[in-house]
Write a protein that binds this DNA or RNA. Structure first.
Lengths: 196, 196
DNA sequence: CCATAAAAGCAGAACGGTTCTGTTTTTACA
DNA sequence: TGTAAAAACAGAACCGTTCTGCTTTTATGG
Protein backbone atom coordinates (compact mmCIF):
# COMPACT_ATOMS: atom_id res chain seq x y z
CA UNK A 1 0.00 0.00 0.00
CA UNK A 2 1.78 3.14 -1.20
CA UNK A 3 1.98 6.16 1.04
CA UNK A 4 0.39 8.32 -1.62
CA UNK A 5 -2.90 6.82 -0.64
CA UNK A 6 -5.61 6.24 -3.18
CA UNK A 7 -8.94 7.43 -1.96
CA UNK A 8 -11.82 5.10 -2.67
CA UNK A 9 -13.11 7.62 -5.20
CA UNK A 10 -9.90 7.32 -7.21
CA UNK A 11 -10.42 5.10 -10.24
CA UNK A 12 -7.90 2.48 -11.29
CA UNK A 13 -4.56 3.08 -12.86
CA UNK A 14 -5.94 2.62 -16.34
CA UNK A 15 -8.48 5.41 -16.07
CA UNK A 16 -6.02 7.63 -14.31
CA UNK A 17 -3.42 7.25 -17.04
CA UNK A 18 -6.05 7.80 -19.66
CA UNK A 19 -7.04 11.04 -17.98
CA UNK A 20 -3.39 12.07 -17.83
CA UNK A 21 -2.93 11.46 -21.52
CA UNK A 22 -6.05 13.46 -22.25
CA UNK A 23 -4.89 16.34 -20.08
CA UNK A 24 -1.42 16.30 -21.63
CA UNK A 25 -2.96 16.65 -25.07
CA UNK A 26 -5.37 19.41 -24.10
CA UNK A 27 -2.64 21.31 -22.26
CA UNK A 28 -0.16 21.07 -25.09
CA UNK A 29 -2.79 22.19 -27.56
CA UNK A 30 -4.01 25.16 -25.58
CA UNK A 31 -0.50 26.35 -24.89
CA UNK A 32 0.43 26.23 -28.55
CA UNK A 33 -2.83 27.85 -29.63
CA UNK A 34 -2.41 30.73 -27.20
CA UNK A 35 1.15 31.26 -28.37
CA UNK A 36 0.75 31.09 -32.10
CA UNK A 37 -2.95 31.00 -32.90
CA UNK A 38 -5.36 28.18 -33.62
CA UNK A 39 -4.88 28.06 -37.37
CA UNK A 40 -1.10 28.06 -37.25
CA UNK A 41 -0.73 24.96 -35.12
CA UNK A 42 -1.25 21.55 -36.73
CA UNK A 43 -2.51 18.36 -35.18
CA UNK A 44 0.75 16.61 -35.90
CA UNK A 45 2.63 19.27 -33.97
CA UNK A 46 0.27 19.04 -31.02
CA UNK A 47 0.65 15.29 -30.93
CA UNK A 48 4.41 15.75 -30.94
CA UNK A 49 4.37 18.18 -28.02
CA UNK A 50 2.12 15.90 -26.01
CA UNK A 51 4.38 12.99 -26.98
CA UNK A 52 1.49 11.03 -28.35
CA UNK A 53 0.38 9.59 -31.69
CA UNK A 54 -2.00 11.51 -33.91
CA UNK A 55 -4.56 8.73 -33.61
CA UNK A 56 -4.44 9.11 -29.84
CA UNK A 57 -5.43 12.75 -30.11
CA UNK A 58 -8.56 11.77 -31.99
CA UNK A 59 -9.24 8.90 -29.63
CA UNK A 60 -9.71 11.52 -26.90
CA UNK A 61 -11.18 14.46 -28.81
CA UNK A 62 -13.59 14.45 -31.71
CA UNK A 63 -11.96 17.36 -33.52
CA UNK A 64 -9.24 19.95 -33.34
CA UNK A 65 -11.70 22.53 -32.03
CA UNK A 66 -12.76 20.24 -29.20
CA UNK A 67 -9.23 20.43 -27.79
CA UNK A 68 -9.96 23.95 -26.66
CA UNK A 69 -13.20 23.27 -24.81
CA UNK A 70 -12.06 20.38 -22.69
CA UNK A 71 -13.93 21.45 -19.58
CA UNK A 72 -17.11 22.55 -21.27
CA UNK A 73 -19.10 19.87 -19.48
CA UNK A 74 -18.54 21.66 -16.19
CA UNK A 75 -20.24 24.77 -17.53
CA UNK A 76 -23.45 23.01 -18.44
CA UNK A 77 -23.37 21.10 -15.19
CA UNK A 78 -23.25 24.42 -13.38
CA UNK A 79 -26.22 25.70 -15.34
CA UNK A 80 -28.26 22.58 -14.77
CA UNK A 81 -27.50 22.75 -11.06
CA UNK A 82 -28.62 26.36 -10.95
CA UNK A 83 -31.90 25.38 -12.53
CA UNK A 84 -32.59 22.25 -10.55
CA UNK A 85 -31.51 23.61 -7.19
CA UNK A 86 -33.10 27.01 -7.46
CA UNK A 87 -34.99 28.25 -4.37
CA UNK A 88 -38.16 26.25 -3.93
CA UNK A 89 -41.13 27.85 -5.61
CA UNK A 90 -39.15 30.37 -7.63
CA UNK A 91 -39.66 30.53 -11.40
CA UNK A 92 -37.20 28.76 -13.68
CA UNK A 93 -36.87 31.90 -15.71
CA UNK A 94 -35.42 33.74 -12.72
CA UNK A 95 -32.79 31.06 -12.23
CA UNK A 96 -31.92 31.16 -15.93
CA UNK A 97 -31.72 34.93 -15.97
CA UNK A 98 -29.43 34.96 -12.97
CA UNK A 99 -27.11 32.30 -14.33
CA UNK A 100 -26.76 33.85 -17.78
CA UNK A 101 -26.32 37.35 -16.45
CA UNK A 102 -23.58 36.11 -14.16
CA UNK A 103 -21.98 34.23 -17.00
CA UNK A 104 -22.06 37.29 -19.22
CA UNK A 105 -20.52 39.37 -16.45
CA UNK A 106 -17.75 36.82 -15.96
CA UNK A 107 -16.96 36.94 -19.63
CA UNK A 108 -16.19 40.62 -19.31
CA UNK A 109 -14.46 40.68 -15.97
CA UNK A 110 -12.62 37.38 -15.81
CA UNK A 111 -9.01 36.93 -14.75
CA UNK A 112 -6.18 37.24 -17.22
CA UNK A 113 -6.05 33.55 -18.04
CA UNK A 114 -9.71 33.48 -18.93
CA UNK A 115 -9.42 36.66 -20.93
CA UNK A 116 -6.64 35.22 -23.05
CA UNK A 117 -8.76 32.15 -23.60
CA UNK A 118 -11.81 34.17 -24.57
CA UNK A 119 -9.78 36.31 -26.94
CA UNK A 120 -8.47 33.21 -28.64
CA UNK A 121 -12.00 31.95 -29.17
CA UNK A 122 -13.39 35.31 -30.25
CA UNK A 123 -10.70 35.95 -32.79
CA UNK A 124 -10.88 32.48 -34.35
CA UNK A 125 -14.06 31.98 -36.36
CA UNK A 126 -13.82 28.21 -36.24
CA UNK A 127 -13.64 28.30 -32.46
CA UNK A 128 -16.39 30.85 -32.10
CA UNK A 129 -18.66 28.72 -34.25
CA UNK A 130 -17.76 25.58 -32.38
CA UNK A 131 -18.48 27.25 -29.07
CA UNK A 132 -21.91 28.29 -30.29
CA UNK A 133 -22.49 24.76 -31.49
CA UNK A 134 -21.67 23.43 -28.04
CA UNK A 135 -24.25 25.72 -26.52
CA UNK A 136 -26.82 24.69 -29.07
CA UNK A 137 -26.20 21.06 -28.25
CA UNK A 138 -26.71 21.83 -24.58
CA UNK A 139 -30.19 23.13 -25.24
CA UNK A 140 -31.60 19.62 -24.99
CA UNK A 141 -29.94 18.97 -21.65
CA UNK A 142 -31.15 22.29 -20.37
CA UNK A 143 -34.66 21.68 -21.65
CA UNK A 144 -34.86 18.38 -19.80
CA UNK A 145 -33.63 19.98 -16.61
CA UNK A 146 -36.29 22.65 -16.96
CA UNK A 147 -39.05 20.17 -17.75
CA UNK A 148 -38.09 17.83 -14.93
CA UNK A 149 -37.76 20.49 -12.28
CA UNK A 150 -40.92 22.44 -13.05
CA UNK A 151 -44.40 21.81 -14.37
CA UNK A 152 -43.35 22.92 -17.85
CA UNK A 153 -43.93 20.31 -20.53
CA UNK A 154 -41.03 19.33 -22.72
CA UNK A 155 -42.13 21.26 -25.80
CA UNK A 156 -42.32 24.50 -23.84
CA UNK A 157 -39.07 23.73 -22.10
CA UNK A 158 -37.31 23.22 -25.42
CA UNK A 159 -38.60 26.50 -26.73
CA UNK A 160 -37.58 28.26 -23.55
CA UNK A 161 -34.10 26.73 -23.64
CA UNK A 162 -33.72 27.70 -27.27
CA UNK A 163 -34.80 31.29 -26.82
CA UNK A 164 -32.67 31.84 -23.73
CA UNK A 165 -29.54 30.28 -25.18
CA UNK A 166 -29.87 32.07 -28.49
CA UNK A 167 -30.54 35.35 -26.77
CA UNK A 168 -27.44 34.80 -24.71
CA UNK A 169 -25.35 34.03 -27.77
CA UNK A 170 -26.67 37.16 -29.45
CA UNK A 171 -25.88 39.20 -26.34
CA UNK A 172 -22.27 37.99 -26.29
CA UNK A 173 -21.87 39.31 -29.80
CA UNK A 174 -22.93 42.80 -28.84
CA UNK A 175 -20.93 45.47 -27.11
CA UNK A 176 -23.72 46.11 -24.68
CA UNK A 177 -24.34 42.61 -23.48
CA UNK A 178 -26.51 43.73 -20.61
CA UNK A 179 -28.90 45.69 -22.78
CA UNK A 180 -29.53 42.69 -24.97
CA UNK A 181 -30.16 40.49 -21.96
CA UNK A 182 -32.53 43.10 -20.56
CA UNK A 183 -34.45 43.04 -23.78
CA UNK A 184 -34.43 39.26 -23.97
CA UNK A 185 -35.84 38.59 -20.54
CA UNK A 186 -38.31 41.41 -20.81
CA UNK A 187 -39.59 39.85 -24.01
CA UNK A 188 -39.77 36.38 -22.52
CA UNK A 189 -41.79 37.68 -19.58
CA UNK A 190 -44.17 40.04 -21.31
CA UNK A 191 -43.80 39.70 -25.05
CA UNK A 192 -42.19 42.03 -27.54
CA UNK A 193 -42.63 45.73 -27.06
CA UNK A 194 -45.18 46.86 -29.64
CA UNK A 195 -43.72 47.48 -33.10
CA UNK A 196 -45.73 48.77 -36.00
CA UNK B 1 -27.87 40.92 -84.61
CA UNK B 2 -28.78 37.27 -84.14
CA UNK B 3 -32.37 36.14 -84.42
CA UNK B 4 -32.23 34.68 -80.96
CA UNK B 5 -32.52 38.19 -79.68
CA UNK B 6 -30.89 39.25 -76.45
CA UNK B 7 -33.19 41.20 -74.26
CA UNK B 8 -31.62 44.28 -72.74
CA UNK B 9 -31.82 42.57 -69.37
CA UNK B 10 -29.62 39.76 -70.64
CA UNK B 11 -26.05 40.21 -69.49
CA UNK B 12 -23.08 39.67 -71.78
CA UNK B 13 -21.74 36.35 -72.97
CA UNK B 14 -19.18 36.20 -70.21
CA UNK B 15 -21.68 36.39 -67.42
CA UNK B 16 -24.00 34.01 -69.20
CA UNK B 17 -21.32 31.38 -69.62
CA UNK B 18 -20.27 31.82 -66.05
CA UNK B 19 -23.82 31.19 -64.93
CA UNK B 20 -23.98 28.13 -67.15
CA UNK B 21 -20.83 26.71 -65.63
CA UNK B 22 -22.18 27.35 -62.19
CA UNK B 23 -25.48 25.68 -63.00
CA UNK B 24 -23.73 22.70 -64.58
CA UNK B 25 -21.76 22.17 -61.38
CA UNK B 26 -24.75 22.55 -59.07
CA UNK B 27 -26.87 20.26 -61.24
CA UNK B 28 -24.25 17.55 -61.49
CA UNK B 29 -23.69 17.71 -57.75
CA UNK B 30 -27.34 17.54 -56.77
CA UNK B 31 -28.01 14.69 -59.14
CA UNK B 32 -25.16 12.65 -57.74
CA UNK B 33 -26.05 13.48 -54.15
CA UNK B 34 -29.66 12.42 -54.61
CA UNK B 35 -28.56 9.19 -56.23
CA UNK B 36 -25.85 8.06 -53.89
CA UNK B 37 -25.85 10.36 -50.86
CA UNK B 38 -23.85 13.42 -49.95
CA UNK B 39 -21.01 11.64 -48.20
CA UNK B 40 -20.43 9.09 -50.93
CA UNK B 41 -19.78 11.58 -53.70
CA UNK B 42 -16.43 13.35 -53.89
CA UNK B 43 -15.59 16.76 -55.22
CA UNK B 44 -13.34 15.29 -57.88
CA UNK B 45 -16.20 13.17 -59.16
CA UNK B 46 -18.57 16.13 -59.27
CA UNK B 47 -16.02 18.16 -61.17
CA UNK B 48 -15.68 15.29 -63.63
CA UNK B 49 -19.41 15.04 -64.22
CA UNK B 50 -19.71 18.78 -64.74
CA UNK B 51 -16.66 18.59 -67.03
CA UNK B 52 -14.84 21.20 -65.04
CA UNK B 53 -11.67 21.50 -62.96
CA UNK B 54 -11.79 21.09 -59.20
CA UNK B 55 -10.59 24.64 -58.75
CA UNK B 56 -13.54 25.84 -60.82
CA UNK B 57 -15.96 24.21 -58.43
CA UNK B 58 -14.50 26.20 -55.57
CA UNK B 59 -14.37 29.35 -57.65
CA UNK B 60 -18.18 29.19 -57.76
CA UNK B 61 -19.04 27.65 -54.39
CA UNK B 62 -17.36 28.15 -51.04
CA UNK B 63 -17.76 24.53 -49.94
CA UNK B 64 -19.17 21.16 -50.87
CA UNK B 65 -22.27 21.83 -48.78
CA UNK B 66 -22.94 25.08 -50.61
CA UNK B 67 -23.46 23.12 -53.83
CA UNK B 68 -26.78 21.95 -52.47
CA UNK B 69 -28.21 25.34 -51.53
CA UNK B 70 -27.57 27.16 -54.76
CA UNK B 71 -30.84 29.08 -54.76
CA UNK B 72 -30.91 29.92 -51.09
CA UNK B 73 -30.67 33.62 -51.83
CA UNK B 74 -34.15 33.54 -53.35
CA UNK B 75 -35.59 32.29 -50.09
CA UNK B 76 -34.30 35.17 -48.02
CA UNK B 77 -35.28 37.59 -50.74
CA UNK B 78 -38.82 36.28 -50.48
CA UNK B 79 -38.80 36.71 -46.72
CA UNK B 80 -37.43 40.23 -46.91
CA UNK B 81 -40.05 41.14 -49.48
CA UNK B 82 -42.78 39.79 -47.25
CA UNK B 83 -41.53 41.98 -44.43
CA UNK B 84 -40.94 45.14 -46.38
CA UNK B 85 -44.06 44.99 -48.49
CA UNK B 86 -46.49 43.92 -45.80
CA UNK B 87 -49.83 45.77 -45.74
CA UNK B 88 -49.31 49.31 -44.54
CA UNK B 89 -49.72 49.68 -40.82
CA UNK B 90 -49.70 45.96 -40.02
CA UNK B 91 -47.20 44.64 -37.46
CA UNK B 92 -43.94 43.08 -38.63
CA UNK B 93 -44.60 40.13 -36.41
CA UNK B 94 -47.72 39.28 -38.39
CA UNK B 95 -45.79 39.28 -41.62
CA UNK B 96 -43.08 37.10 -40.09
CA UNK B 97 -45.60 34.69 -38.66
CA UNK B 98 -47.35 34.34 -41.96
CA UNK B 99 -44.18 33.78 -43.91
CA UNK B 100 -42.71 31.19 -41.57
CA UNK B 101 -45.99 29.33 -41.19
CA UNK B 102 -46.30 29.15 -44.95
CA UNK B 103 -42.71 28.01 -45.25
CA UNK B 104 -43.24 25.29 -42.65
CA UNK B 105 -46.35 24.15 -44.46
CA UNK B 106 -44.49 23.96 -47.74
CA UNK B 107 -41.81 21.84 -46.16
CA UNK B 108 -44.40 19.24 -45.34
CA UNK B 109 -46.53 19.37 -48.45
CA UNK B 110 -44.06 20.13 -51.22
CA UNK B 111 -43.91 18.32 -54.54
CA UNK B 112 -41.87 15.18 -54.97
CA UNK B 113 -38.75 16.97 -56.12
CA UNK B 114 -38.69 19.18 -53.08
CA UNK B 115 -39.39 16.26 -50.79
CA UNK B 116 -36.42 14.34 -52.14
CA UNK B 117 -34.31 17.42 -51.62
CA UNK B 118 -35.52 17.91 -48.07
CA UNK B 119 -34.93 14.27 -47.24
CA UNK B 120 -31.37 14.54 -48.50
CA UNK B 121 -30.76 17.50 -46.24
CA UNK B 122 -32.51 16.00 -43.25
CA UNK B 123 -30.67 12.73 -43.41
CA UNK B 124 -27.22 14.33 -43.87
CA UNK B 125 -26.00 15.98 -40.66
CA UNK B 126 -23.48 18.15 -42.49
CA UNK B 127 -26.22 19.51 -44.74
CA UNK B 128 -28.69 20.01 -41.94
CA UNK B 129 -26.09 21.98 -39.99
CA UNK B 130 -25.15 24.00 -43.03
CA UNK B 131 -28.76 24.84 -43.70
CA UNK B 132 -29.21 26.07 -40.16
CA UNK B 133 -26.04 28.10 -40.54
CA UNK B 134 -27.45 29.76 -43.64
CA UNK B 135 -30.53 30.78 -41.71
CA UNK B 136 -28.46 32.10 -38.88
CA UNK B 137 -26.46 34.18 -41.30
CA UNK B 138 -29.67 35.58 -42.71
CA UNK B 139 -30.70 36.91 -39.33
CA UNK B 140 -28.71 40.07 -39.93
CA UNK B 141 -30.36 40.72 -43.28
CA UNK B 142 -33.75 40.09 -41.77
CA UNK B 143 -33.02 42.32 -38.81
CA UNK B 144 -32.12 45.20 -41.08
CA UNK B 145 -35.26 44.71 -43.13
CA UNK B 146 -37.28 44.80 -39.93
CA UNK B 147 -35.51 47.84 -38.56
CA UNK B 148 -35.74 49.75 -41.83
CA UNK B 149 -39.39 49.02 -42.46
CA UNK B 150 -40.72 49.69 -38.97
CA UNK B 151 -39.94 51.91 -36.03
CA UNK B 152 -38.05 49.11 -34.32
CA UNK B 153 -34.47 49.95 -33.45
CA UNK B 154 -31.73 47.63 -34.66
CA UNK B 155 -31.06 45.97 -31.33
CA UNK B 156 -34.70 44.97 -30.97
CA UNK B 157 -34.85 43.91 -34.59
CA UNK B 158 -31.84 41.64 -34.15
CA UNK B 159 -33.37 40.01 -31.13
CA UNK B 160 -36.67 39.58 -32.93
CA UNK B 161 -34.96 38.07 -35.98
CA UNK B 162 -32.97 35.73 -33.77
CA UNK B 163 -35.93 34.49 -31.78
CA UNK B 164 -38.13 33.99 -34.81
CA UNK B 165 -35.50 32.19 -36.85
CA UNK B 166 -34.43 29.96 -33.98
CA UNK B 167 -38.01 29.18 -33.13
CA UNK B 168 -38.57 28.23 -36.73
CA UNK B 169 -35.50 25.99 -36.78
CA UNK B 170 -36.68 24.32 -33.61
CA UNK B 171 -40.13 23.84 -35.08
CA UNK B 172 -38.73 22.12 -38.17
CA UNK B 173 -37.07 19.59 -35.91
CA UNK B 174 -40.33 18.63 -34.27
CA UNK B 175 -43.03 16.35 -35.57
CA UNK B 176 -45.67 18.88 -34.71
CA UNK B 177 -44.24 21.92 -36.40
CA UNK B 178 -47.43 23.91 -36.05
CA UNK B 179 -47.65 23.47 -32.29
CA UNK B 180 -44.12 24.82 -31.85
CA UNK B 181 -44.88 27.81 -34.04
CA UNK B 182 -48.08 28.44 -32.08
CA UNK B 183 -46.07 28.46 -28.90
CA UNK B 184 -43.35 30.64 -30.36
CA UNK B 185 -45.57 33.43 -31.61
CA UNK B 186 -47.73 33.32 -28.54
CA UNK B 187 -44.61 33.79 -26.46
CA UNK B 188 -43.34 36.63 -28.61
CA UNK B 189 -46.66 38.43 -28.31
CA UNK B 190 -47.46 37.94 -24.67
CA UNK B 191 -44.50 36.32 -22.93
CA UNK B 192 -44.07 32.79 -21.69
CA UNK B 193 -47.01 31.09 -20.12
CA UNK B 194 -46.39 31.09 -16.37
CA UNK B 195 -44.15 28.28 -15.16
CA UNK B 196 -43.31 27.68 -11.53
C1' DC C 1 -9.91 44.22 -87.14
C1' DC C 2 -6.54 44.12 -83.59
C1' DA C 3 -4.08 44.74 -79.21
C1' DT C 4 -4.47 44.14 -74.70
C1' DA C 5 -5.97 43.29 -70.22
C1' DA C 6 -9.16 41.17 -67.24
C1' DA C 7 -11.86 37.19 -66.23
C1' DA C 8 -12.50 32.41 -66.25
C1' DG C 9 -10.86 28.13 -66.39
C1' DC C 10 -7.35 24.44 -66.20
C1' DA C 11 -4.01 20.51 -64.47
C1' DG C 12 -2.03 18.87 -60.85
C1' DA C 13 0.51 19.28 -56.62
C1' DA C 14 0.26 20.45 -51.85
C1' DC C 15 -1.94 21.03 -47.34
C1' DG C 16 -4.18 19.62 -43.14
C1' DG C 17 -7.79 17.49 -40.41
C1' DT C 18 -9.45 13.03 -39.91
C1' DT C 19 -9.75 8.03 -40.48
C1' DC C 20 -7.89 3.54 -41.29
C1' DT C 21 -4.77 -0.62 -40.88
C1' DG C 22 -2.29 -3.51 -38.50
C1' DT C 23 0.62 -3.96 -34.56
C1' DT C 24 2.49 -3.47 -29.81
C1' DT C 25 2.19 -2.21 -25.00
C1' DT C 26 -0.28 -1.75 -20.80
C1' DT C 27 -3.69 -2.90 -17.49
C1' DA C 28 -7.11 -5.75 -15.22
C1' DC C 29 -8.38 -9.87 -13.38
C1' DA C 30 -9.13 -14.73 -12.62
C1' DT D 1 0.89 -16.14 -14.56
C1' DG D 2 -2.04 -16.37 -18.55
C1' DT D 3 -5.28 -13.99 -21.13
C1' DA D 4 -8.30 -10.67 -22.96
C1' DA D 5 -9.57 -5.99 -23.30
C1' DA D 6 -8.12 -1.27 -23.51
C1' DA D 7 -4.97 2.08 -24.93
C1' DA D 8 -1.56 3.68 -27.69
C1' DC D 9 1.37 3.51 -31.73
C1' DA D 10 3.46 4.39 -36.66
C1' DG D 11 2.37 5.65 -40.76
C1' DA D 12 -0.39 5.43 -44.85
C1' DA D 13 -4.62 6.86 -46.88
C1' DC D 14 -8.63 9.87 -47.63
C1' DC D 15 -10.85 13.98 -49.02
C1' DG D 16 -12.18 18.81 -48.88
C1' DT D 17 -9.79 22.82 -49.88
C1' DT D 18 -6.09 25.88 -51.45
C1' DC D 19 -2.15 27.01 -54.19
C1' DT D 20 0.89 27.58 -58.38
C1' DG D 21 1.58 28.62 -62.73
C1' DC D 22 -0.43 28.47 -67.01
C1' DT D 23 -3.96 28.72 -71.18
C1' DT D 24 -8.28 30.21 -73.15
C1' DT D 25 -12.05 33.27 -73.61
C1' DT D 26 -14.28 37.62 -73.54
C1' DA D 27 -14.68 42.61 -73.47
C1' DT D 28 -13.15 46.93 -75.09
C1' DG D 29 -11.26 50.91 -77.30
C1' DG D 30 -8.09 52.50 -80.79
Amino acid sequence: MPSTSQRPSTPGRRERKKAETRAAIANAALELFLERGFEDVGIREIAGHADVAVATVFAHFPSKEALVFDDDAAVVASLVTAVVERPAGSPVLDALEHWFRTSARNRRHGDQEFTRFRDLVDRTPALHDYWQGLWRNHRTTLAHAVADSSDTDLARAELLATLVVEGYLLATEHDDTTATLDLLFRTLRGGLPAAG
